[in-house]
Write a protein that binds this DNA or RNA. Structure first.
Lengths: 172, 172
DNA sequence: TCATCTGCTTGCATTTTGCAATCAGTTGCA
DNA sequence: TGCAACTGATTGCAAAATGCAAGCAGATGA
């Protein structure tokens, strides 16, 4: 499935790549959720993607050069999907998208804490995150130390979830 | 037409607002093309939007709070569409989208010059542009002087078109 | 008077989506 | 060895979205 090429406008072409309801959700789950397998993406999706749509989008994203697929040595039927540099450079767009949504839309607190931290971190944090993704997905050596950006975001998410649970049942 | 609310994730909610093939195209034409009327959007769209889709999206964007509609005093049948602050703050996202598309997708030279300038200008230029849009669409006083960002982008576009035409027929 | 323009609707064919069931092969465990 | 669970998908079908062409009533300008 190639691009429609309705026009050569960069915004239009970008929309033709991920201007649908699922492609960016899948990439979001791979980037921020660290998911690499079909089932992880299928069952881990809070939005509830259907398996045929997931299969179709993975195929399409591969054809567009956003993903690659490799055999998982631990299981003959498992496939590992990897982000390409093309997909990794979407991080700033996802950060902006999250920041905008957090301001204007009825987001939930626990799901928007990541967007908030990512916005506060700004371009330096995005760059660090992209380097981590390059390491994970492309095998490029990583020279930064300390906790990963994803782990930091994930910890903040867990903290909000824990706090909300504590608030809901204050009995010790 | 309200949000689906598949989840409270800010990225997901943003996609539910403009994660389709036309909403952002319409906003792009209003923001960068300065279009305010139905027919301008219909006939000026290089991607060729259909009139029923345009009508549906304008209605939806109004319901979502991205646009408002007012009577045009010059013509009893004309309506003027205006961007809200919610839509104006999409400028940085559109800038990133354009920058990403310019790198990774087969854009045309004349249609990507605006994205290039907008990327070079960075956040200061985006802020200036947003102030201009607030002036145009919300009536907020403008204190910056000099040529508008849109005029600058438009002039660059025209220059590329002229250059290409000259290259195609070099005879003086 | 009359062609043109205004925003927008209608009808209909095609495409995309969502949902549930299913598939063939692989694996881990008893 | 047997068998349930898991692997990445595919299939069939209904519902929804999209694309296209035509049309609409009222307003405007010459």
């Amino acid at each position: 499935m190639a691009l429609d090429r309705r026009s050569g406008c960069p915004i239009n072409l970008s929309l033709e790549v991920f201007g649908d309801r699922w492609s960016l959700i899948i990439l979001r789950d791979m980037i921020f959720g660290g998911r690499r397998h079909f089932r992880e993406l299928l069952n881990g999706s809070i939005e509830g993607i259907a398996s045929n749509i997931l299969a179709d989008r993975l195929k399409r994203l591969m054809e567009l050069g956003m993903l690659t697929k490799a055999d998982d040595p631990s299981h003959k039927q498992k496939a590992i999907y990897s982000l390409t540099e093309m997909a990794i450079t979407l991080v700033p767009i996802l950060a902006h998208l999250g920041a905008w949504g957090r301001v204007w839309l009825p987001t939930s607190e626990e799901l928007s804490i990541r967007a908030e931290l990512l916005e506060q971190g700004g371009p330096p944090m995005w760059e660090k995150f992209m380097d981590e993704l390059r390491h994970e997905h492309l095998g490029i050596p990583l020279d930064t130390a300390g906790p990963s950006v994803r782990a930091t975001l994930q910890a903040a998410y867990q903290a909000v979830v824990a706090k909300k649970a504590a608030d809901a049942s204050p009995a010790a």
